[in-house]
Simulated assay, not measured.
Amino acid sequence: MPIVTLTMNPAIDIAAGADHIRPTSKTRCTPPRFDPGGGGINAARTIAALGEPVTAIFPAGGPSGRQLENLVRDAGVPMRSIPISGHTRENLAVTDHGAGDQFRFVFPGPRVTAPELHHCLSEIESAAVGSRYVVASGSLPPGVPDDLYQILADLLRDLGARLILDTSGAALRAVRRGVHLLKPSVRELAELVGHPLPDRKSQLAAARELILAGVSEIVVVSLGAGGALAVTRHEDEWFPSLEVTVRSGIGAGDAMVGAMTVGLSRGYPLDDAVRLGVAAATAALTTPGTRPGHPARIAELYQQGPETRPSCFLPADSGSPETPVPLRRT
């Protein structure tokens, strides 16, 4: 059964480089790279790279929307595109090769009307029938209510599908219940709980607060160079980052979400699913633009460490996955 991803605010991600970036001066860039973007689409590309069936659902409009559809198709990801009257947004990232800094310019996206939103939800409802996992990732465009992901969580509960959610801001604050796995960054988690989270103890407490409130069964906090922290109601485990030379940080968190969903869909214990996510995120850091990591590189990074882990190229038995709880008990 395919994994389904939803990207309500997709984009064409344009990436280029320049020798130097200075204010007011013309910046001569390298030839641009064009990638299909938006959280759910990026996650779907990693899911497909790891060999799992996936369907990406997203609204698209205008000439840029048609280009986005072509880019998703070229990436080998099956899709359901919902036509909208607005034009799909384009985002820009330029890397200063001299300083090593990356400058990212992100636009708000087109307004989505109520009928267009209803069409999106109808496509999700249709695609999610029989699916174990639905990944919803990214920001919400203008016109979409802040509580869309709560509406989605309630819809998927009735369908028997599990929601993997990665969002921020008002869309995250509006979620009250029904998420299976929530993946905030530590900054997003701090904004949600309303105070800084300077250490592991405060991060763990904030994540467990969401779990005890019924927002999510599992919270995986991405800590950037600090790794990741996975938390359930009674257990937690910290996963260190893996050292690589970073080429582009765009889409690494989405790759993590996609790979964790692959692991869970194959019945991996939660700790192995998170390790697969960390490996995919790390591999994505070494690729240009938002290209997912190569499967062989993901496998190599995943197998680092003393434990024997299931191969990330061998799908688990098609039966119901086990409850993912083998973490360190607190």
Rank of each mutant, 00 (worst) to 15 (best):
K201Y: 05
F313H: 15
L172C: 02
L229T: 07
A299G: 14
Y302R: 08
S216K: 01
H180P: 00
S202T: 15
P310I: 09
V175D: 00
S222A: 11
V246H: 01
L181D: 01
L212Y: 01
V246I: 13
G267V: 09
V231Y: 04
A207L: 03
A205E: 15
L181P: 01
L301E: 11
A207Y: 02
R233H: 11
E235W: 02
R291G: 00
P269G: 14
L229M: 08
G253I: 05
K201R: 15
M256S: 06
H195G: 10
L276P: 10
G227A: 07
E235S: 15
V215C: 03
G214I: 04
E307W: 09
D271V: 11
L192K: 12
L189D: 09
P269N: 14
H195R: 15
Y268M: 15
G293Q: 04
V220E: 03
E243L: 10
R247H: 10
L223G: 04
V246E: 12
V246F: 02
V175Y: 01
A273R: 06
L223Q: 12
A171M: 03
V193A: 15
R173M: 00
G227W: 05
R176D: 02
R291D: 11
V220Q: 02
E307N: 11
L197M: 10
L182E: 05
V175W: 00
E307D: 15
E237I: 01
G194N: 12
A170H: 09
A283C: 07
E217D: 14
Q304D: 04
A171Y: 03
K201G: 07
S241T: 15
L182R: 05
S241R: 02
G226D: 13
I250S: 14
I218E: 03
G224K: 06
S241Y: 02
P198R: 13
A190P: 11
L264G: 08
R291Y: 00
C312R: 02
G277Q: 10
Q203M: 12
L285N: 05
W238V: 10
A283L: 07
P196S: 13
L204A: 13
L189Y: 08
H180G: 00
G214W: 05
Q303F: 05
G249M: 08
R247V: 14
T308H: 14
L212I: 05
W238I: 04
K183S: 11
V193D: 14
A171T: 03
E188Q: 12
T261W: 05
